[in-house]
Simulated assay, not measured.
Amino acid sequence: MGDAKWIWALRDGLTMSKRSLMHIFRDVESLLMAIALPVSIMLLFVYVFGGAIQTGTDYVNYVVPGVIITCAGFGSSLISVSVTKDMSGGLFERFRSMPLQPSSLLVGHVVGGYLRNMIATLAVFIVALLIGFRPEAGLLEWLGVIGILTLYMISINWLFVVLGLLTKNVETAGAFTFPMLFLPYLSSAFVPTNTMPVWLDAFSKHQPMTPLIEALRGLLIGTPIDYNLWLTILWFSGLLVLSYIAATLLFRRRKNE
């Protein structure tokens, strides 16, 4: 009986993931925006601000990890709007009458968001290589980069699912994502934290984006990683577990309303 339940859940999750994947390639404008925005940010910082910022390395090498995280955050924020649309529209009403596993609709959004983010991330890497980005990572380091990015993307995808479940309209859902999207700008993504005011430097060093970016930077270009890798795993593993539990409980509550 237990095995049948897991098979049922997996089947429903795959079905909803296919649905989300189809939406990604049908909604070409959103996909292009998810790619164009981070690429534009990277070009802006490299060519407009890069000459005035001293980082001890070529600025393009310094800024790419932060751009990737910003890119993933923007792509994931679209999930909140999609979840809110599903929950407040006729689609959810149809699902309520079906023997649907509570998390399968949410899993579809998370998987779809992850694939959209990976496409956008690949585009950022390609453009970065064209403008001078030169990573020093070997095979193990690249595997580490993929692993960290996957953990980050999946965890914030579930967080944005929670935000989508908490809101009743798409405007509010979009507004709720802003604080998470703003965090990379208050980290070491674009400038070293020691150039910030003391109070902001302290905040930057103790929020989750800075260890994440420093871990990625260390894996990609060989800067010291120190304890940043373990902090990243702790931060985003905890976020993943809490967000998944919250999303499942909220979905069940909405399903029973």
Rank of each mutant, 00 (worst) to 15 (best):
M1V: 00
W6C: 01
W6Q: 02
A9I: 14
R11H: 10
D12Y: 02
L14D: 00
K18C: 06
S20D: 13
M22C: 09
H23Q: 15
D27A: 05
E29S: 15
E29D: 07
M33C: 09
A36N: 03
I41E: 00
M42H: 07
Y47Q: 04
G50C: 05
Q54V: 05
D58L: 11
D58T: 13
N61C: 02
N61M: 01
Y62L: 14
T70V: 13
C71N: 07
S80G: 11
V81Y: 13
D86G: 06
D86P: 10
M87F: 13
M87C: 11
E93D: 15
E93G: 13
S97Y: 14
M98D: 03
P99E: 02
L100N: 04
Q101E: 13
G108C: 13
V111N: 06
L115H: 06
L115W: 14
A120H: 03
V127D: 10
L130S: 14
I131S: 03
F133K: 04
R134P: 07
R134E: 06
E136D: 10
E136G: 10
L139R: 10
E141H: 01
W142S: 00
I146S: 02
G147E: 07
T167R: 09
T167N: 12
T172H: 02
G174M: 10
A175K: 12
M180W: 04
L181S: 03
F182H: 11
S187C: 04
F190G: 01
F190K: 00
V198W: 02
D201W: 12
A202E: 08
H206V: 08
M209N: 03
L212K: 00
R217V: 13
R217Q: 01
G218W: 04
G218T: 08
L219P: 12
T223P: 04
P224M: 05
D226G: 12
L231C: 02
S237P: 05
S243I: 06
Y244Q: 10
L249M: 08
L250K: 07
L250S: 12
